[in-house]
Design a protein around this nucleic acid. Sequence first.
DNA 1: GTCATCGGTGAAGAAAACTTCCCGGGAATC
DNA 2: GATTCCCGGGAAGTTTTCTTCACCGATGAC
Lengths: 217, 217
Amino acid sequence: MAKILVVDDDRELRENIAEVLTEAGFEVLKAESGEKALQLLGPAVDLVLLDLVMPGMGGMATLSLLKQHQPRLRVIMLTAFATVENAVEAMRRGADDYMTKPFKVGDLLMTVRKNLEEAKFQECHLALDMDQTFNCLSNPMRREILRCIGREGRIRFMDLARRLQIEDHTKMNFHLKLLREAGLVAQDERKLYTLTAEGRRVIGCMELLAHTLNPKV
Amino acid sequence: MAKILVVDDDRELRENIAEVLTEAGFEVLKAESGEKALQLLGPAVDLVLLDLVMPGMGGMATLSLLKQHQPRLRVIMLTAFATVENAVEAMRRGADDYMTKPFKVGDLLMTVRKNLEEAKFQECHLALDMDQTFNCLSNPMRREILRCIGREGRIRFMDLARRLQIEDHTKMNFHLKLLREAGLVAQDERKLYTLTAEGRRVIGCMELLAHTLNPKV
DNA sequence: GTCATCGGTGAAGAAAACTTCCCGGGAATC
DNA sequence: GATTCCCGGGAAGTTTTCTTCACCGATGAC
C-alpha cells in the first residue's frame, strides 16, 4: 500500500490524520516540521500532506525543497488560512492539491486516493513514453536521422537518405517509422519530414547528454 | 573535405585567408560580420575562423551565439590586439583556439588542421560513449536499477534485487554488468554498488527527459 | 561441521531488434 | 503510353539482446 508522510506542527491534528490514514490501510510517516519532513523523505514515500503554516521552515519553502529533491512526489497542501494568492503560489511551486482546514475525514481520504490514482496513471504513461523514446535513441542511425532532420528543418525522404549516406532506403524507412511512431518525427503537408515539438525537446536532451558525457567538447 | 567559415570585416584579409584555405583543399564560406556568419551557419560547417574585433556584433558575442546554436562547432579566434584577458575570456566562452594577427600561412593551416583532427577524434569518442550510454538507458530494468542506486546512494546486490522485486538475481546481474561496463555504476571498497559521477549526470538527464516528455508531472 | 544466504559466471534458448529482399502505387519525364 | 525515380509496405532471414537455468566459491550463522 502507499506510503504517506504527514507534516504538521499541530501534534493533535497530525496524530488524527495519521490515525485516519492508517485505518484506511496506508503506511504513515509523521513529521512536525519541514526540516524533519526532508529528513524522513525516502524513495518509498508516495505522497506528502503538508501544512502551509509552520514555525521554522514554512510549508511553501518545504514544498519547493521536496519537489526539487523528488520531482514526481505528490504533495497536498493543508491550511487553515486559505487565500487565492497562497493557493496559486503553492500550485505554481508544484503542489498537486490544496485543502482547507478543517476538512472532513471523507474528503481527506478522497483527495488522497484521487492523487495517488493520478500519480499511478501518470507514472504509467510516463514509463511508456520513456520506453519508446529511449528505444528510439538507443540506435545510432535513428539518432543520426533525428539530428539530421533537426538541422535541415524539413527534408525529403530521399534527400535524407543521401545526406546520411544510407544506400538502402528501406532500411532507413524502418527507423524513420519508429521515430514517427514514437512521436518524435512527423510529416508535413508536402510529405517533408520535420521534427515534432517533442522531437526538438528530445534533441535538446541528447545534446545535453553528449555534453555531459564529454565535458571537453 | 571540411567546410570552413571565415568571418572578418577586413575584406582583404578575409579574401586572403579564404584563398589560402581554398588552395589547401577546404571548402570556404565568407562573412563580413557576426550577423552574416550566423545566417550562413549551416550544419555542414566544421570550423569557424572568427575575428575578435568587428563593427556591429563583436567576435565575442558572435562566438557565444555560434556555440549556443551548435555546441560542437570548432571556433578559432583571430585578433590583432591580443591580451591575456581576451584570450581567457574567449576560451571561457568556448573558443577552441586563439591566433594573433599577423600570422604565417603555415601556422594558420596547421592550426586549422590540428583543430579539425581534434574534432574528428572527439566526435568519434563521443559517438562510442553515446552508444553505450543510450543502449544502457534503452532498457527499462536498467533505468530502474540506475534510479534505485541513485536514490539509495550505496546498496548491496541482494538488497537491490529485493527493492526492485526482481526474483532472479542473475537476471539483474546481467543488467548491472552492462551498467558497470558503461561506467555508470561502480562498486565501492565494500562491494556496495554506487553511481559514478557520470552515472549521476546521466540520471539528471533522464529526469530532464522525463520532465520533457510529460511536462505535467 | 552443516546449512543457508550472498554474489556471482557461463551457456543455451527465447525474444526482440535489425537488415535485406521483393513488391507496388504514384508522380514526373520522355 | 512507357519508363524511371520517389516513397513506402510486408515478410523472411539474420543478428543482437535478454532470460533462464545450472553451477560454484565465499561468507556467516547455528
